[in-house]
């Protein structure tokens, strides 16, 4: 196999952000996320690439997530998390399963993010549970949330029930998900979407974590704002 070098010498390392919904310390949800992130890093090194990882432990953000849900206030930790995710090249999102669903803390964190913060970013979805009966939570519950956020979820879901921790197959699934997300980062897909097609998604002023500040002065509404008619101009949207 030829090793493909994606970036020139001295290029910025890939920025991988781990979001863990684990609540204990140590947490199996966090451990699963770390194993995936480690594997991505190892695979990248084999290909002469570097990965820098930041971790968002949602447990530390619990009260700020609650505040954000019921008010419009983003606390300093939420602000930092949003800033990290906004410039992430890829995300590992790992949730504990509660009552046949990703934990409320995990889901709520993603509920309060701007809809366009994660567009086209590669995401590895992972979950832990006490029983393998929860195995489809990743595909049935988490994948739809991340589809709504228009992320690029990798094909392999990583699920670990108690009995999986010592299995060789879990390690293989982790490796598969890791190479998938690495290849997506290498492709530069998310960045190309941002430079070539970003405007074709729905945005609000100040969305994407406060970075979406472009104002289209030629829109129908802007025409109306400046004394024009509310009738659509028929101008094709970009």
């Amino acid at each position: 196999m030829t090793v493909q070098q994606r970036r020139p010498e001295g290029a910025q390392p890939f920025h991988l952000v781990v979001v863990s919904g684990g609540t204990s310390d140590p947490s199996s949800t966090r451990m699963l996320a770390d194993r995936i992130a480690d594997r991505v890093r190892t695979l990248a090194e084999e290909r002469d690439e570097k990965v820098a990882t930041d971790v968002i432990d949602l447990r530390e953000l619990a009260t700020e997530i609650g505040t954000a849900l019921v008010s419009q206030l983003m606390g300093p930790k939420m602000t930092r998390a949003i800033e990290l995710l906004g410039r992430a090249d890829a995300v590992v999102a790992s949730a504990p399963v509660y009552k046949a669903a990703p934990s409320g803390l995990f889901s709520s964190f993603f509920h309060v993010l701007d809809n366009d913060l994660l567009i086209a970013k590669p995401v590895v979805l992972a979950a832990t549970a006490g029983t393998s009966r929860h195995a489809l939570v990743v595909d049935h519950e988490m994948r739809s949330l991340f589809a709504y956020l228009r992320t690029m979820t990798v094909p392999t879901s990583v699920f670990a029930a108690t009995e999986d921790w010592n299995s060789k197959e879990l390690g293989e699934r982790i490796s598969r998900a890791a190479i998938e997300v690495l290849l997506l980062m290498e492709s530069g897909f998310a960045e190309k979407i941002r430079t070539e097609s970003w405007k074709s998604y729905q945005h609000e002023y100040g969305s994407a974590g406060g970075t979406e500040l472009d104002i289209d002065l030629s829109s129908d509404l802007m025409r109306l704002a400046t004394g024009g008619s509310a009738k659509p101009s028929g101008k094709p949207r970009p």
Binding site: S71, Q72, L73, E204, Y205, G206, G210, I215, L217, S219, L221, M222, L224, A225, T226, G227
Partner: peptide, 28 residues
């Protein structure tokens, strides 16, 4: 608080623009 079209309309007519400035940080 977050609608550029309203700010544009205020500017177009030379009217005043008011920011509620209660729920969000000043930077917003």
């Amino acid at each position: 608080i977050r609608t550029p079209e309203i700010a544009e309309q205020a500017a177009f007519y030379g009217n005043g623009y008011f920011a509620n400035h209660i729920f969000w940080p000043t930077s917003h």
